[in-house]
Design a protein around this nucleic acid. Structure first.
Lengths: 168, 168
DNA sequence: GGACCTATATATAATCC
DNA sequence: TGGATTATATATAGGTC
């Protein structure tokens, strides 16, 4: 009964932590679903965690596959017709920032940068895991350490939850 | 006063939709923050949307950069020391599934598959955008259409919110 | 539009099986 | 553990400026 105000801190008790994780993951998924529906945003989410044997996806496994497949079939050219203006007029999206390259989208650079980072990170994550056929948890665990341990051999202790949301 | 039970459907009114989007995005961020803290999960979130001129990140721009940078500096080998057992003993994570390759993690295959999909998808997204210096919104817009339009030239109307969560 | 302000709708911690 | 249950803590739609 949520009688406790939930101190925002790491839950020491393992079972409690797991229980909370599952509940909140579910809640997060629901929120994504609602945001998607209410704002007309197409989205898919993939949540991977050591708690679940299978990655959890939204809206559904096939839904995720479909979105990805459809995207792949798009001729690259068709994917880039500029339509900032159209978007604005049709849905008032797009808040063009001043002083941006006229022909490009104002956020292109930032997005590209982030995508590159994510992309590279995913690649490394995938490669390393495949090479050793090892759990990716360690990787995440290490990445977690704010400073040290990174180069050392002292493996991290807990952690290991990977959640990847890709909402388009 | 949330007097209304909020019909879970696309919000036609533009300003209302935007207002809702901003509120819910904030709520989602908070939820991610809480999940991260409560469950000891290191995470970063990147949310890009046409409503905001800059991508929104969590825990902070520098925090995201740091996590990514640190991860990159990891020697690939160091990233994969198996530690399923350690994790279990230390934090009771890792729920080993029976009948899996003894040396690999049970979820490796599934994860690898998803990562590949996401990875490829991100690459395509990035490449196409960079080639034309165009907004990636169109891409998302198209991907949204459940069935048609995909191959046609009739561009989508609204949409354009990209949210990419990468929680590790 | 953005920044509050509530009244309600929801999320969820704690408990029991 | 994995569900239900339910009392509270939160999230937030709708108003008001």
């Amino acid at each position: 009964m949520t009688r406790k105000k939930v101190k925002l801190a790491f839950i020491a008790n393992d079972s409690s932590r797991k229980a909370t994780y599952k509940k909140r993951k579910k809640g997060l998924m629901k929120k994504v679903n609602e945001l998607s529906t209410l704002c007309g945003i197409n989205a898919c989410a993939i949540i991977y965690s050591p708690y679940d044997s299978n990655p959890e996806v939204w809206p559904s496994n096939s839904g995720v596959q479909r979105i990805i497949s459809e995207f792949r079939t798009l001729p690259e050219m068709d994917q880039n017709k500029k339509m900032t203006k159209d978007s604005q007029s049709l849905g008032q999206f797009e808040e063009t920032k001043e002083g941006q390259p006229r022909d490009g989208d104002d956020r292109s650079y930032l997005i590209d940068q982030y995508l590159k980072d994510v992309n590279r990170r995913i690649e490394i994550l995938g490669n390393s895991r495949m090479e050793l056929g090892e759990s990716s948890n360690n990787v995440a665990a290490e990445a977690i350490q704010t400073v040290p341990i990174i180069h050392g051999s002292a493996r991290v202790s807990r952690v290991d939850v990977h959640i990847t949301f890709v909402i388009l």
